[in-house]
Each structure stands twice: as C-alpha cells, then as structure tokens.
C-alpha cells in the first residue's frame, strides 16, 4: 500500500488556483521530492497532506486514511516541518523536545524517553539545549525543529524546504541527517524544495510541479535520461518550458 495517494487534488485561494488537479503516489520508505519554483503549489500540497487545510476537490490518503475524515489518525502517523517554522521562544530546546515527545507518547503509546533521547541526539546542540530557544541562531533552531520532526519516528515525515535560508554547512548537515535517518529507520519522507541539487542528492523519486500542475515524475536518473540533461535543474527548466510554450 502506498504511504501517500493523491488524486485530482485541487485548491484555490479566492480566484487563484494553487493546485489544478495533481495526482501522485509515494511508496513506503522512500524519499519523495516535490520540486518547483516559488508559488508552484508545493507548500499548499504539503499543508493539505499535513491536515492543516482541506482541499477543494480530489482525494488524499495517508497510509490508507482519508485526510479529511480521518485527520486525527493521520496526525498520529505524520510529522510536519513547515518552511518558516519556529519553536516556543520562552522554552529551552530540551523542554520543547520533551513537550512534543509527551504529546506523541500520549497519542501513539510510543516510548517517551526513547523519543526524547533520540531528539537530543538528532539536534546535536549539546549544552545549548538548556538555553531558551530565542537565543538560538537560525541554523540551531532549524536543527532543533528537524530533531523534533524526526525523533517521533513517524510513518511519514513531511519537510517543507528543510534547508531554506541556511548556510552551506548547516544545509549539508541537515540533508545528511534526513537521508541517514530515512535509510536507518525506514521512514518515508516527502520533501519540497526549489533547490534542485538538494533534491537530486536526497530523493529516490521526484515530481516537478509548475503552476499547480505536475509536469513530470520519476527517479532523478530517469528524468535526466528523458530530457538528456546533466542535472535536475536542466530537467526542470526543459519540462517547465514544455508546459509554458506547448
């Protein structure tokens, strides 16, 4: 059974159609990338999958559960990292991780201590975990949030632009962590990015989304071969042009 099944998904903001009927499937344990420029509809897709907002039309299932009718069940299986997320500024990093571990332990019956200790390890912030979050740099906050997302070992991790706004070192470290974690724990990861090289490094399969439509999908190798391109960036440009100019 696929971990995600999306069919004919449509969503509008007033008169603007952000998604115009997209469909895709994601297999369990894979890292799937949604790539596209800003405003393509990536974040909207991820928000719908994370049960933050309902779609206008179409069907979305996570692990066989309908995301509208069975949202509470879906929330036990997923863990979401928004693009511009923050943590509670008045709590310490440690308190924040404990809060999330307690909630998941309460809802899913997983071992709270185990999740908490994994969070500490994934964050890699050492003694700074005992400082309040408002003293953290952007990179440190992002590491804490990624640790929070992954420590609960979800069936599906949804990561919206996980390395957005980070310097090269921090971005590299986070990408490594995501890939390693997914391989070790078998966690399915849906990642969105407009950084094609990042997606090429991370993902088993990708879907290129442009103006609310999926214009291509496949493994990075397949797509590069199909478009006779050296990297995903070239694939994206050629696939988008094909849609724009027919």
């Amino acid at each position: 059974m696929p971990i995600i099944e999306v069919s004919n998904l449509e969503k509008s903001y007033g008169s603007l159609w952000a998604l115009k009927g997209i469909s895709f499937q994601m297999k369990e344990g894979e890292i799937f990338g949604l790539i596209g420029p800003n405003g393509a509809g990536k974040s909207t897709t991820l928000k719908i999958l994370a049960t933050l907002m309902p779609q206008d039309r179409g069907r979305v299932e996570v692990a066989g559960y309908d995301i509208i009718r069975e949202a509470p069940k879906v929330r036990k299986l997923i863990s979401y990292l928004p693009e511009e997320a923050g943590a509670y500024r008045n709590l310490t990093g440690r308190e924040y991780l404990r809060f999330v571990a307690e909630l998941y332990a309460n809802a899913t019956g997983k071992d709270e201590k185990e999740m908490f200790e994994l969070g500490i390890e994934l964050a890699g912030l050492g003694t700074r975990l005992d400082d309040k979050v408002f003293t953290y740099s952007k990179g440190m906050t992002r590491k804490l949030l990624l640790a929070r997302t992954l420590m609960v070992v979800p069936k599906l991790a949804i990561l919206d632009e996980p390395t957005s706004g980070l310097d090269v070192m921090n971005a590299y470290e986070i990408r490594e962590r995501i890939k390693e974690f997914s391989r070790e724990r078998g966690v399915s990861v849906l990642v969105s990015s407009h950084n094609m090289l990042e997606v090429e490094f991370l993902c088993d399969r990708v879907a290129i989304i442009h103006r609310g439509i999926i214009v291509e999908a496949g493994t990075p190798g397949e797509l590069k071969e199909k478009y006779n391109a050296e990297n995903l960036e070239e694939v994206f440009v050629r696939a988008s042009r094909r849609v724009s100019y027919g």
């Binding site: 049960t51 933050l52 509470p72 929330r75 036990k76 979401y80 928004p82 008045n90 809802a107």
Partner: peptide, 16 residues
Amino acid sequence: MEKESRTLETLLTLPI
C-alpha cells in the same frame, strides 16, 4: 505568541 514564533502550524499537525 504561537503565531509570532511560527509554532501554530506545527501545533495543528501534532496528535492533539
């Protein structure tokens, strides 16, 4: 404070 520190989106996807 949830909105200002951008924690509300995350909170709404937690199992609570």
